[in-house]
Design a binder for these strands. Sequence first.
DNA 1: CGGGTTTGACCTGCGC
DNA 2: GCGCAGGTCAAACCCG
Length: 213
Amino acid sequence: MEGGQGVGGSRCYLLDVPPVSRPSMVHQMEFEHPKENAQGLGFLVPPDGTPFLLSTDVVPFTNAAAASCDKSMSKPWSNEEVATSDSKGRNDQTGSCRDGGANSWWRSSSLEKGKVKVRRKMREPRFCFQTRSDVDVLDDGYKWRKYGQKVVKNSLHPSRSYYRCTHSNCRVKKRVERLSEDCRMVITTYEGRHTHSPCDDASSSEHECFSSF
DNA sequence: CGGGTTTGACCTGCGC
DNA sequence: GCGCAGGTCAAACCCG
């Protein structure tokens, strides 16, 4: 486990966010390594290039955290695979599939519903970080919709939630789970890049103050 | 009524 | 090849 980097492709940081009643307080966090973060958080940086700011210290993930994080990431997302397409060359016409299938990234090939499903393997840039917060969902300025929840084994807090950016053309996903060792620690994993600015989603004035997210 | 959440089912990938 | 675990869908449900 080399430092604050998770297994392949995904970067992990630990954000020591003071317990706040409103997760939105996290909006002004600041990264220690702007350059790296700019890269690692590319998916969090809106197209207009607005930097992603954090207000608290960001340190590499602890081994435990990283392990936990990595476990959930499993291997498919090694750097290589992130950069290249599926070697198996699965017939996943992902792009077209995504666009054609409403807002589904993979979809039944519309032949027989529920039968032949062409699931694509997402190989978007991923970034996970750990925060200490009483709330699960950090308000990063984007609007998320929960699309699933899973029971995670080997965890005292077996609930992992899956969120998706509600923006029509945005494919970013977010996964939120509690650290088993510390129920106050929240592991948030982002996947993909936002194709829009936070304002597009969070149209409410509440979010305007930290549109830099 | 529209948008978000819940939840069970289904599919895929991986380890054994 | 089989079983398990993770990830996602989609219908039902809930709430403002």
